Simulated assay, not measured.
Amino acid sequence: MMASSLSLSLSRLAPALWWVPRGIVFGLMAFFIFGPLANMLLWTVAERWYFPHTLPAQYGFSAWQNVFAPRGGALESLRNSLLVAVLTVIVALMLAIPAGYALARLKLPVRGLILLAFLIPQAFPNLTVYVNIARIFYEIRLNGTVAGLVLVHVSHGLVYAVWIATAAFSAIDRELEQAARSAGAGPMRAFMDITLPLAAPGLMASAIFVFLESLDEFTGSYFVGAPDVTTLPLLLYTAGSGGNYQVASITALLLLVPSLVFMLVVERFLKADVLSRVGH
């Protein structure tokens, strides 16, 4: 009787004990993910923080004032980052929309090789690629210009633009275009009135990916843009390497917020039927 009651108690206790290792694993994951974020947020308001204090000894917002002061460089870096990112999105979409439509609709014999060709910039170490790009841009006077930065960012973000655009157009039923054509619409009219609006959510997600990639790009911006065109990642690197953790944390926060917001937007726009056609 006592043995049966003990086994019954253990059987009831087993499911509860099973959550113990799960809780430990989830707790460690939360610590490694949110711990650095919490440390960054503390540095943004820390006036004095030194060993052996676990938390800042003094809080304040003087670092924010210094960052956004005319000599702080944050506003200029933010303007440069947004300008380069917006121009990168425009150029990338101008190339990705016709390329994605052609890859989705035309029966190209080397379609797979064309898609793989857009991965070439990702296949090699960025450092070696950007060093040679910087040398070429210096010879043609594109080094240290916004146009040079945009070209570098487009070469890096075009893979997202083309692959997602191809998937977005592939997810649209061709019979809808054929119905518009049979009703008297020309090819361009059918594309503008039917295909493009239906592909707009996928293209929006593509634009957001390219925008975030450009906003966070450091290596290409360093070799091609610095010191004439300063972006937020360059300001973050300069502040971090100089030990100014308040400025580095504030700059990192400025980069983190749009990334989180836009990723939520991507999750809303990028549906499963589009994702299932990426690479097909």
Results as ranks from 00 to 15, higher is better:
Ile164His: 04
Gly35Val: 05
Ala92Tyr: 05
Ile140Phe: 05
Leu236Asp: 10
Thr195Val: 07
Glu175His: 14
Ala179Asp: 07
Gln246Lys: 15
Trp64Arg: 08
Ser206Lys: 00
Thr231Asn: 05
Pro52Trp: 13
Ala226Gly: 08
Lys271Glu: 00
Gln65Phe: 13
Ser62Asn: 14
Leu115Gln: 10
Val146Met: 12
Ile24Glu: 08
Phe32Ile: 08
Val89Gln: 09
Ser214Asp: 09
Ala190Asn: 03
Ser155Trp: 03
Gln122Cys: 06
Leu10Cys: 00
Phe223Arg: 12
Ile114Cys: 12
Leu37Trp: 02
Ser206Ala: 15
Thr195Gly: 06
Ile24Gly: 15
Phe118Ala: 14
Val146Asn: 10
Ala38Asn: 09
Leu83Ser: 01
Ala102Cys: 11
Gly72Asn: 03
Ala85Cys: 08
Ile164Asn: 01
Leu78Ser: 06
Arg105Phe: 08
His280Lys: 09
Thr238Pro: 11
Ile120Gly: 04
Pro15Trp: 05
Val229Met: 07
Gly144Gln: 01
Asn132Thr: 13
Val154Ala: 03
Val45Trp: 01
Leu119Met: 14
Met29Val: 09
Leu10Arg: 15
Ala168Cys: 11
Lys107Cys: 06
Asn143Arg: 15
Glu217Asn: 03
Phe137Lys: 09
Leu149Pro: 03
Glu177Asn: 14
Val261Gln: 07
Leu176Ala: 15
Ile194Thr: 03
His280Gln: 05
Leu232Gly: 14
Ala104Val: 08
Gly73Phe: 02
Phe118Tyr: 10
Ala226Ser: 15
Ala199Trp: 07
Arg189Gly: 04
Asn143Cys: 01
Leu37His: 00
Gly73Val: 04
Trp18Leu: 15
Ser77Ile: 01
Gly100Phe: 10
Val110Arg: 06
Gly35Asn: 12
Ala57Asp: 12
Val131Tyr: 01
Phe61His: 11
Leu41Thr: 00
Phe61Glu: 10
Ala167Gly: 06
Ile250Ser: 05
Tyr245Leu: 15
Ala3Gly: 13
Asn132Gln: 11
Gln178Leu: 11
Phe169Gly: 02
Ser259Glu: 11
Ala147Met: 07
Phe223Leu: 13
Glu267Asn: 10
Leu83Ile: 03
Val45Tyr: 06
Leu103Val: 09
Phe68Cys: 08
Gly35Ala: 10
Arg268Phe: 08
Ser62Lys: 06
Asp273Tyr: 06
Tyr245Met: 15
Ala180His: 05
Gly72Leu: 09
Leu203Ser: 00
Ala3Val: 12
Ala179Lys: 14
Trp18Asn: 02
Ile136Ser: 02
Gly144Val: 02
Ala14Gly: 10
Leu260Asp: 07
